[in-house]
Design a protein around this nucleic acid. Structure first.
Lengths: 196, 196
DNA sequence: CTAGGGTGTTACCGGTCTGTAACTATGCAA
DNA sequence: TTGCATAGTTACAGACCGGTAACACCCTAG
């Protein structure tokens, strides 16, 4: 993999893709810019011509991740046009797939764990992107006709977040295996108590 | 703080306490052994006389954390002797307090995010300690007379874990504020469906 | 053909990291 | 007083880090 990106695209894109992949696998402080550029089939100078620092590269990687997640949400809409409840269930299934994909948790959460300086530029965009993500899930729950949409969205969100860190600590055979069951149970329960 | 540990205890203890504190605040890769020993009022050679490497120090810190968490559980038993349901509610309240304590998540989860090498010695003890932790919560739910004890314990555990990373990404004012409400609701719901 | 922007190459700077060597100072016990 | 374990000090090794300078290369547009 990693080298699959080397093909023939612009150096900037190759660096971004490779950095995303390596940050995800080895963590941010676990990867140096030299290793990134080498894996991307280019060199350090070219990186610094496109990104003013490693920190900026980190931020761009996080934004790219969010963009990819956004595409996933659009996929739900095209797959189940107008059927918000079906889209919510699609989100649950997609989340379950992501849990089994690999043992690494959420890139943003991992970045927040690593970058502890309170004024690190990445912390701002992490908060921004996570809040946008929450808004989307809340809107989906609300439009699906669920009464306490915020509470359900937050509960599902915390469950998923927790499942991702559980996978990272005890592996894919731990409590996270019950995620779908928990999530579906919650949706049923919330639909029962107060429908729109 | 940090310097409060310097008082007069054995150098090994001071190093361990200081390392726990600094790893928690700044992450593992964010702290060098020099900084630890200086904050502990000693020096690098003394550290390497008591710990054969930084990795071993990390492992000992994680075990010390687990020991402290174990003491917390014993506190529940002494506070509500025999009343397992009360102890479960005490756990929920304690978890809520920890959520507001600081913006750093679970040390084990953070360590797992940072130490990505699959055979890192810390990964073994993280898995071991997290599984022990889960067993304790399952036992508490079971002894509290809840039917699906494993499912409730896992759900509560994922919720808490998720809340901790939420605090780390969007702060204490995010979805984690609803943790107690979610947890109490779940306990009520599980007690209703199947009592012992 | 030529000019110029994007790219590759090499070498380097100053700093930090884990870990070690060699030596000195201290305190306690026989 | 002698002896020994523990702890402190200084200096260093070897590696890696983010970031920059200077220069050679190629491809394309005019």
């Amino acid at each position: 993999m990693t080298d699959g990106v080397v093909e023939r695209s612009r150096p900037r894109d190759r660096i971004l893709e490779t950095a995303r992949d390596m940050f995800h696998k080895h963590g941010i402080k676990g990867v140096g810019v030299d290793a990134i550029t080498e894996a991307a089939g280019t060199n350090k100078m070219t990186l610094y011509r496109h990104f003013e620092s490693k920190d900026e590269l980190i931020v761009e990687c996080l934004r790219a991740n969010a963009a990819k997640a956004g595409a996933m949400w659009e996929g739900f809409e095209t797959e189940f046009p107008g059927d918000k409840l079906a889209q919510l269930h699609a989100w649950v299934r997609k989340a379950a797939v992501m849990l089994k994909a690999d043992g690494r948790g959420c890139d943003m959460a991992n970045a927040a764990a690593e970058l502890t300086e309170p004024d690190h530029p990445a912390r701002l965009v992490i908060k921004e992107l996570k809040e946008a993500q929450r808004e989307r899930l809340v809107a989906l729950c609300r439009d699906a006709g669920i009464g306490q949409a915020e509470l359900l969205a937050d509960t599902l969100s915390l469950l998923f977040e927790g499942a991702r860190v559980s996978v990272q600590t005890v592996g894919t055979e731990g409590p996270s295996t019950q995620f779908v069951r928990m999530a579906e149970g919650l949706i049923v329960s919330f639909r029962g108590t107060a429908a729109g």
